[in-house]
Structure formats: structure tokens, C-alpha cells
Simulated assay, not measured.
Amino acid sequence: QRMATVSLTMGGVIKSTSLLPGEPVRQGSVLATLENPDFITLQQTYLDSHAQTEFLEAEYLRQQALSAEQAASQKKLQQSKADYLSMKSRVEAAAAQLKLLGVEPEVLLKEGIQPFLQIKAPINGYVADVKMNVGKYMNVGDALCEIVDKSRTLLRLTTYEKDLADMKVGNPVQFRVNGMGKTVFKATLISIGQKVDEDTRSVEVYARVDTVDNQFRPGMYVTARIMKEQASAEQ
């Protein structure tokens, strides 16, 4: 939840980007722009279908009024209804595809066709593992970069099955981080794994860090003590 991989639902060529690893970004900010003729075609399909839907809806309402006055055949009314509903479904399908790409159909109606697709940050955080550059073709599903939100940090710890009896959610945790000296940080146990590794007889547990330090980085190694709730004995 606090680490996002930015990937594509439409392939294309990276037109522009200025990202650097470690750079802070805000949710919704533009990370890069993508060039793909299919994106322009999709927008055109939506706009054309939207215009046709308005016309067919008016025609369908006209046929309804004529039918009520018995001035039009049921065949014309049914055909008009079918044409309208078919075009309406095309509009909804195109709108759904645009939303998957992060484009709001209402904005497209106001501002017109956009030449490039904007890739936006899904969360607040720091940029990591940038794999794109200007001119590079990216396929659907390719990861462009990762964004790490350090506002809430978790510890993933390895403990052993012999310690499970004295361990429960809510236990305080004390830990040190490799490369950060003898400073002791505090955390709280929030999850205990339900599967024991057959080879090591170990269990994964997770703890929420109480106070986040700016020097913390995903992947850092820590040494931790899981404490009893009522005592300070090491587990």
C-alpha cells in the first residue's frame, strides 16, 4: 500500500520525463508523457461516438413521440432504440478505456484531443528504480519506476516457531538499523505469519514503526527484539 509500481496499460514511446531517483513526487503529478497514435484514435472514437449518441437519442425520442401519436411504425421505433443503445454502449466502452488511462471524458469534451498520454503518480512518495528514458518504447505492463511512501514504515522480521507462544499482536518491538549506529527505534507488532518455513522453522512477522526516520530505506536490514507486553524480557 505504501509502495507503488508505475506501469502502463497502453504501450508507446516516452516523449518526455525529468525524473531522478530519490526525487519526491505528489500524487497526481505528471511523471512522463507517452506517445502512441492509438491514444489519439481512442479519443477520436469517444468524441465521435458521443456526438452520434446525442443525435440518435434525439431521433429515438422523436420516434417515441410519433409512436405515441400513432404516426410512426413500431419497426422504426425499435430500430431507432437499437441504434441509440448501441452507440451509447460504444461511448461507455470508450469512456471506460480512457479512465483506465487516467483521462477523464468530461475533460476531453472541454479541451479536445490531447496528443500525448500523461503518466501520473498514484501515490505521494519518492521515486526509485527509474527504467525509462526519452525515446524508449515501453510495452503494456512495463514498469516505468517505483514510488516509495515513507510516511508509514513496516518491519518484516524473521522469528522462530519456539517463540510463538509468547508473541501476540500489540507487543512492543525495539530495533536497530544496520549503518545507523546504536540508535534504538521502537515499533509495534501488527501481524504474525500463519505459515512456518519447513526448512528454517521460521515465521515472518510484521511491525509498524512508531517514529519514522528520514534515513530509513526499503530493503535495509535491522536487528530487532520483540518484547513481552508486561515485561522487558527478550523473546
Score class of each variant (00 low, 15 high):
R2N: 13
L8G: 10
T9P: 02
G12W: 03
I14G: 11
T17G: 07
L20H: 13
G22P: 08
G22I: 07
P24A: 05
S29M: 05
T33C: 08
L34I: 04
E35T: 06
E35A: 15
D38N: 06
F39D: 04
F39R: 04
L42S: 02
Y46T: 11
L47W: 04
Q52G: 14
T53N: 07
L56C: 07
L56W: 04
L61P: 03
Q64G: 06
Q70P: 05
Q74T: 08
Q74C: 05
L77N: 01
L77T: 04
Q78Y: 04
S80L: 11
D83P: 13
Y84F: 15
S86D: 06
S86R: 07
M87Y: 07
K88H: 09
R90M: 01
R90P: 02
E92L: 09
A93R: 13
A93Q: 14
A93Y: 14
A94P: 00
A95M: 01
Q97D: 10
L100D: 12
V103H: 09
E106N: 08
E106W: 08
L108S: 13
L108H: 03
L108Q: 02
L109Y: 05
L109R: 01
K110A: 12
K110N: 11
P115C: 11
F116S: 11
P122M: 04
G125C: 13
G125S: 12
Y126H: 14
V127L: 14
V127E: 04
V130Q: 07
M138L: 08
M138F: 00
D142W: 08
C145E: 09
C145T: 15
D149F: 00
S151R: 01
L154T: 01
T158G: 11
L164D: 15
A165P: 06
D166K: 08
M167H: 04
G170Q: 00
V173R: 04
V173I: 03
Q174M: 10
F175W: 13
R176K: 14
T183S: 05
F185I: 01
K186W: 03
T200Q: 00
R201G: 14
V205P: 15
T211R: 05
T211C: 06
V212A: 12
N214M: 09
F216M: 12
R217S: 10
P218Y: 10
A224H: 09
K228E: 08
E229S: 11
Q230A: 05
A231F: 03
E234I: 12
Q235G: 06
